[in-house]
Design a binder for these strands. Structure first.
Lengths: 156, 156
DNA sequence: ACACTAATTGCAAATCAATTGCAGTAAGGA
DNA sequence: TCCTTACTGCAATTGATTTGCAATTAGTGT
């Protein structure tokens, strides 16, 4: 299944690390869960597989995965009240960005090739080197928009 | 001076709020400090004016300012180790974005009108309404780039 | 299969930024 | 100047994340 697990195992082999049951569970979480799980969502999932699994193991594994370049994390102001939270994401080859629905908190990925031009322009104009870009769009997803419209009609 | 203080005073008048010495100090911090101070930087500055001023007052005032629309905060992975931190910024009419130097942690503002096209495109393609965009670029600023080059020459 | 060794885990305690409850203080209108 | 109540300081709390350490165990060598 998850080629994440395959890649992780390979990396572990190469570096003298060990593939433990806990790590496997945490890796599986990325297949089982919706995209962009938070550390806590990973932890909650992991508990269903092994109730003994400890939060610190989740944090340590997530940090290790990030270090190994298999997973990245980004900060998104999602959640019902728009509070900030860190979300984790398997690394993909293509740089992608996020739309966050301020209604339901859903996170959707999208690509935006135009960002390359912005990076290049800023680099040229400032003399900096630009390595990474993170764009977050905030608004109401299509579903929440229609729901808002409906409830408006309901309470005039 | 700060029209921030003027605007804040007006808002307070209109809402039955009070302009206290502490709030004035905190507002002054935005003039005195470099752009994008963290809550802690504001607090440290405020202490130099009034050693009794309490962190909770800073947090409460910052939250109030944000609610009033005078200040916004955004999350930037700056700091020497790229750790995440919340930075506060007086609200400006124009949507702007941030370049964060991964070398020295400096934050530079820039505008990117092209973002509007990306917002419109995503909205059209997904049916969502897009209200806000936050773009962060990461890389080495011009100064850090030349320093890195120099130290590379120094240690071949 | 069996033993060995260091990587990894669980647990509990420690951090650390941020928040909250409450009693005392003081802004600003009458 | 008085009075009301918004605001502050303080101390305790929260909640996510980290860390120290003893117990466990993966993966190797035998």
């Amino acid at each position: 299944m998850s080629d994440l697990i395959a890649r992780a195992t390979a990396l572990l082999r190469a570096s003298g690390g060990r593939m433990t049951a806990q790590r496997r569970i945490i890796l599986e979480a990325f297949d089982a869960l919706a995209e962009h799980p938070t550390a806590d969502e990973v932890y909650t999932f992991a508990r269903t597989r092994d109730p003994r699994l400890n939060p610190s193991t989740v944090y340590r594994t997530l940090a290790w995965l990030e270090n190994a370049g298999l997973v990245s994390h980004c900060h998104l102001d999602s959640g019902p009240d728009g509070e900030h939270c860190e979300r984790y994401d398997p690394v993909t080859a293509v740089e992608h960005h996020h739309f966050i629905c301020t209604g339901c908190g859903d996170v959707v990925e999208f690509v935006a090739p135009q960002i390359e031009a912005i990076k290049a322009e800023y680099a040229a104009q400032s003399g900096a080197s630009v390595e990474k870009a993170a764009l977050s769009l905030y608004g109401l997803c299509a579903r929440c928009r229609t729901q808002t419209a409906k409830s408006r009609r309901g309470t005039p």
